[in-house]
Amino acid sequence: MTPIRIFYFSDVLCIWAYIAQIRLNELKTTFEDQIVIESHFVPIFGFAKENLENRWRDKGGLEGYSNHVQEVAKKFNHISVHPDIWTKFTPVSSTSCHLFLRAIQLLETKGLVNPSQQVFEKAIWAFRDAFFTKLANISDRQVQFQIAEELGLSIASIQAQIDSGEAYAQLSKNFDLVKEHIVTVSPTLIFNEGRQRLNGNVGYRIMEANIRELLKNPSREESWC
């Protein structure tokens, strides 16, 4: 049976995507070769600092948003968030991160790293963890280089994917998918060739139920209605 293809859209700076990672891991463990989760990016924090300052101006600004993120994090015991999140260091944009991560993914698709190492997915988590727990300014290229080195990746190889324009092309393709599927929320899961979607903080059992239903009733079958 052909694996179910799932598009997963998120922003690397999104607290809800940070929280949801454990659910994705569980889906991969539960369904193994029955599903394929493709990670894509949606630029919710494309101009992070300016956007947050404007949107939270009447609610305490960046400090107010920081308090909000910390209150959200307290509800989930599998994550931790630094008490100075979004205040001591405020990343300018997640787009820089997304470009760098696309460059890392190209190393996989070109066979420049062992695909079994799953460096792209590991890098996404490393970026999130560095920001939320260590206050790393992950929009800064030097910080990105540092994280890549910690993962044992070649900086020269990553930079070559950016310099050649290929990473930009992949990110542009990613943004076309965002427009095609009208994705405005992080995280968003899209199933069944766009006919089903789950937005935001969705529990694991709901994700699981959607997949089991598709496995039971393949999308190629005509709808009874």
Score class of each variant (00 low, 15 high):
residue 2 T to H: 15
residue 3 P to G: 03
residue 5 R to V: 14
residue 5 R to C: 09
residue 7 F to V: 04
residue 7 F to G: 12
residue 10 S to I: 10
residue 13 L to Q: 15
residue 18 Y to M: 04
residue 19 I to A: 01
residue 20 A to S: 13
residue 27 L to T: 02
residue 27 L to M: 11
residue 30 T to F: 12
residue 32 E to H: 07
residue 33 D to F: 05
residue 34 Q to E: 12
residue 36 V to N: 10
residue 37 I to G: 10
residue 39 S to I: 11
residue 39 S to G: 13
residue 40 H to S: 01
residue 41 F to P: 01
residue 46 G to D: 04
residue 46 G to M: 02
residue 48 A to T: 12
residue 50 E to M: 15
residue 50 E to S: 10
residue 52 L to P: 03
residue 52 L to A: 03
residue 52 L to D: 05
residue 55 R to L: 15
residue 55 R to M: 14
residue 59 K to S: 08
residue 60 G to F: 11
residue 63 E to T: 08
residue 65 Y to S: 01
residue 69 V to Q: 05
residue 70 Q to M: 15
residue 70 Q to I: 15
residue 76 F to A: 13
residue 77 N to T: 14
residue 78 H to E: 08
residue 79 I to F: 08
residue 81 V to A: 11
residue 82 H to V: 07
residue 88 K to W: 06
residue 91 P to H: 02
residue 98 H to K: 00
residue 101 L to D: 06
residue 101 L to P: 10
residue 102 R to C: 12
residue 103 A to H: 08
residue 114 N to C: 09
residue 115 P to K: 10
residue 117 Q to T: 15
residue 124 I to S: 11
residue 125 W to I: 11
residue 125 W to L: 08
residue 126 A to Q: 07
residue 127 F to W: 05
residue 131 F to Q: 09
residue 133 T to F: 08
residue 136 A to I: 07
residue 140 D to I: 00
residue 141 R to H: 09
residue 144 Q to I: 09
residue 144 Q to F: 09
residue 146 Q to A: 11
residue 149 E to A: 04
residue 150 E to K: 15
residue 154 S to A: 11
residue 157 S to P: 00
residue 158 I to A: 03
residue 159 Q to G: 02
residue 159 Q to P: 00
residue 160 A to R: 00
residue 161 Q to S: 14
residue 162 I to Q: 02
residue 171 L to S: 05
residue 171 L to T: 05
residue 172 S to C: 06
residue 173 K to M: 06
residue 176 D to W: 08
residue 176 D to S: 02
residue 185 V to A: 05
residue 185 V to Q: 10
residue 187 P to A: 01
residue 189 L to V: 01
residue 193 E to F: 15
residue 193 E to G: 13
residue 199 N to P: 01
residue 200 G to P: 01
residue 201 N to C: 05
residue 207 M to C: 03
residue 208 E to V: 02
residue 210 N to E: 12
residue 212 R to W: 12
residue 213 E to F: 11
residue 214 L to V: 10
